[in-house]
């Protein structure tokens, strides 16, 4: 029996030495420009707001892969034996009482979150040290009274500022949404009179304001779209050209054809739809293999979610 025990101990010692040597003999996996391995620098430089800062880091090449051996050995670890990160080890014991107290107190004077890295103090300037509880467990979450958290809150029916917004969907399409301003409508009613106002119709006007187009052409380039008083958005699909700038406004068109602006959106520019004209088709084929623009992501496929 004793001989067997000696053998086991000897085997363990041999295994530990072998693993130790094996790890330290491993090369660093970083490539130089020529494809050869280079050593990991012990200091690297980060650029932040135009300044260079040297940042000391541990030379990971010399460190073992934490717990790599444990992966094979730790199958039956009890909860109290499980390895804890230094962050967890340093944290004060978490209990349900602490969870409730910390969660609901005011915290402008609290310390930074314990998840912050050790180097952050040198780099990150945090004027506000706000720390939501960082040591929650599912048991603590179950003890909290969450009533009221998910009560439905109605969305506002309107936002009173900036009554029209235009967004670019693609080189040939805009999305426009607007809000009717009771104040502007009332003003217009006063100006036109009730009868003329009633005979006027709400209208969108899309004007091409691309720099380089002379002012004489602008009126001709305007698109008028009659909408109803109930509409609050429009997908503008016709007459929109790539690489043009548009100014969209909402107003009313009177019976005699006059357009009166009620609100303006900020101008928008549509993107290019094709490569620069100096690039030949054969060059494009060679460079890009196939015409781009179809999207290659499964995220883009109808029926898929971000996750499944």
């Amino acid at each position: 029996m004793r001989a067997l025990a000696y053998l086991v101990v000897l085997g363990l010692v041999f295994y530990v030495v072998w693993r130790f040597l094996g790890r330290n003999a491993g090369p660093k996996a970083k490539l130089g420009p020529d494809g050869t391995n280079v050593r990991e620098p012990e200091t690297f430089v980060v650029h932040h707001h135009g300044k260079e800062q040297g940042l000391e880091i541990a030379n990971a090449a010399k460190a073992p892969i934490p717990g790599r051996d444990d992966v094979e050995l730790a199958e039956d670890l009890l909860p109290e034996q499980r390895p804890r990160s230094s962050r967890q080890a340093d944290a004060p014991p978490a209990d349900a009482e602490r969870g409730r107290v910390i969660m609901f107190r005011g915290r402008p004077d609290a310390q930074p979150a314990s998840s912050a890295g050790p180097e952050e103090a040198d780099i990150i300037d945090d004027p506000i040290q706000f720390t939501p509880d960082t040591e929650w467990t599912h048991e603590m979450a179950e003890e909290v009274d969450w009533e009221g958290l998910n009560d439905p809150i109605p969305l506002p029916s309107h936002y009173t500022e900036e009554a029209i917004t235009a967004l670019v969907r693609n080189p040939r399409s805009l999305y426009v949404y607007w809000e009717r301003s009771a104040y502007a409508d009332q003003n217009l009613l006063g100006t036109l009179g009730e009868d003329a106002y009633r005979r006027s119709t709400p209208c969108l006007r899309v004007v091409d304001v691309t720099p380089g187009i002379d002012r004489g052409q602008l009126a001709a380039a305007a698109i008028l779209i009659d909408v109803s008083d109930l509409d609050d958005h429009w997908f503008v699909q016709d007459g929109i050209e790539p690489d043009h700038m548009y100014e969209v406004s909402y107003g009313r068109r009177t019976a005699d054809g006059q357009y009166i602006v009620l609100s303006h959106a900020l101008p928008v520019r549509t993107p290019h739809e094709s490569p620069a004209p100096e690039v030949s088709e054969s060059m494009l084929y060679r460079q890009y293999v196939t015409q781009p623009g179809g999207g290659g992501s499964t995220r883009s496929q109808p029926g898929s979610q971000p996750w499944r």
Partner: peptide, 15 residues
């Protein structure tokens, strides 16, 4: 150019 990697390559999918 203004672009995305979504369907049609622009913002159509998100608006």
């Amino acid at each position: 150019s203004y672009s995305s990697w979504g369907y049609q390559g622009y913002a159509d999918y998100w608006v």
